[in-house]
C-alpha cells in the first residue's frame, strides 16, 4: 500500500517559544483510517494544521499525495479536506450556500447534484435552506463535514469529530467514515474517545509532548501491549495462595472466592494451560472462568504515562 501522507523531520516552535512538534516522522497509507491519539496539548491539532496549511512549520517536509504542501500547495490542498475541532461556521449562511461556497473555494466548478448527494448522505438535505445559526450542535457538526467533503477530497482530516455529539450521531459518523474509506478516501482522525480508534482505525499513532511515540496497526498494538486477565471463580474460597503457585502473577479477590491471573501479552504470552494444570494438581477447583483484555484506552494511558513499560 503506498503512502498518501509523508512527514519528515517536522518541527514546530511557536513565536511564544513553545515547541509543539519535535522531529515528527510519519507516513499515512492510502485508503486507511489512521487514528492520532494523544493527551491535550500533545501536538495533534498543530500537526493537522500544518498538513492542511493553516500553520507554518518551523522545519521539515510534508508531502500530500506526493505534493509538497509548501512548494506545490495548490495540488496538495486540493486533495485534503478538514473538519476542525471547533464548530466554526458562518451563522447567517444557509446550509446549501455554505457547502457550495466551500466547493468553489477549493477550485471546483459548481455541481449542485454532488452537493445534494453530500447533504443527503449527511441527513442535511431537509435543512438545506436553513440558516446555520438555527441548527443544533450535532447538525452544525454535519455541516462541517459536508463542507470538508464538498470538493471531493482524497484525504480527510477529522479533528475530534465526535466531541460533544450524542451517541446516535457518533454512530452515524462512524458509518459515514467507513463509507468514505470504502470509496478510497484516506481518513486521519484525532479523538479522545479511544473506543472510536479501537473500533474504526486500521492504525494508531500516539503523540505526546510533540513526539510520535508509537505507530502500530490497532490489532497488533492490542496484541503486543495489551494485558490479559483470567478470573477463576473458585468452588471453595482460599485464605492464602499456595506456595506452589509462587512466581505467577496471581491474586485473591472477592474474599478468596476469585483467583485472578494477570499477565502481559508481550512478555510471557500467559501460561494459562500451565496454571490450570497446577491448580488441578493442587486440587483447587473452580466453577467458572472469565478472561478480559485491556482496552486501547488502558494501553494509551500506559503508553503516555509509563512509556508502555507497564505498572
Amino acid at each position: 500500500m503506498s503512502n498518501v501522507i509523508e512527514i519528515e523531520r517536522l518541527n514546530k516552535t511557536y513565536d511564544s517559544g513553545f515547541t509543539a512538534l519535535r522531529d515528527i516522522n510519519l507516513s499515512i497509507r492510502k485508503g486507511e483510517i489512521f487514528a492520532l491519539l494523544g493527551p491535550n496539548g500533545a501536538g495533534k491539532t498543530t500537526l493537522i494544521s500544518i498538513i492542511c496549511g493553516i500553520v507554518n512549520a518551523s522545519s521539515g517536509t510534508v508531502l500530500a499525495d506526493g505534493h509538497d504542501i509548501r512548494r506545490d500547495y495548490r495540488a496538495a490542498r486540493a486533495r485534503i479536506g478538514l473538519v476542525p475541532q471547533e464548530l466554526s461556521t458562518d451563522a447567517f449562511e444557509t446550509v446549501r450556500d455554505t457547502v457550495t461556497f466551500s466547493r468553489g473555494l477549493f477550485g471546483k466548478p459548481a455541481n449542485p447534484a454532488y452537493v445534494e448527494q453530500v447533504l443527503r448522505d449527511l441527513s442535511l438535505w431537509d435543512k438545506r435552506k436553513d440558516k446555520i445559526m438555527a441548527l443544533s450542535g450535532g447538525m452544525k457538526r454535519r455541516v462541517m463535514i459536508a463542507k470538508a467533503l464538498a470538493h471531493e477530497p482524497d484525504i480527510l482530516f477529522l479533528d475530534e469529530p465526535t466531541a460533544g455529539v450524542d451517541v446516535e450521531l457518533r454512530r452515524d459518523m462512524w458509518n459515514l467514515v467507513r463509507g468514505l474509506r470504502e470509496r478510497g478516501v484516506t481518513i486521519i482522525l484525532t479523538t479522545h474517545y479511544i473506543e472510536e480508534a479501537e473500533e474504526m482505525a486500521d492504525r494508531v499513532g500516539v503523540i505526546n509532548h510533540g513526539r510520535i511515540i508509537l505507530v502500530e496497526r490497532t490489532r497488533d498494538l492490542m496484541e503486543k501491549l495489551g494485558r490479559k486477565e483470567l478470573r477463576l471463580q473458585l468452588t471453595s474460597p482460599l485464605e492464602t495462595l499456595p506456595e506452589a503457585l509462587d512466581g505467577l502473577s496471581l491474586s485473591l479477590e472477592e474474599d478468596g472466592h476469585e483467583l485472578v491471573y494477570r499477565f502481559d501479552a508481550r512478555r510471557d504470552q500467559g501460561d494459562v494451560a500451565g496454571l490450570l494444570r497446577r491448580l488441578a494438581d493442587l486440587g483447587i477447583e473452580f466453577r467458572d472462568l472469565r478472561t478480559r483484555e485491556s482496552s486501547l484506552e488502558e494501553i494509551f494511558v500506559d503508553l503516555v504515562h509509563n512509556g508502555g513499560k507497564g505498572d
Binding site: C52, G53, I54, Y73, R74, A75, A76, R77, A78, I80, L82, P84, E86, S88, T89, D90, A91, S102, L105, F106, G107, K147
Partner: peptide, 14 residues
Amino acid sequence: FTGTIYEVLSAPIS
C-alpha cells in the same frame, strides 16, 4: 473572529 478563516487558509488559493 469566528474561526472560519481555517477554510480559506487550507484552500488551494494563492
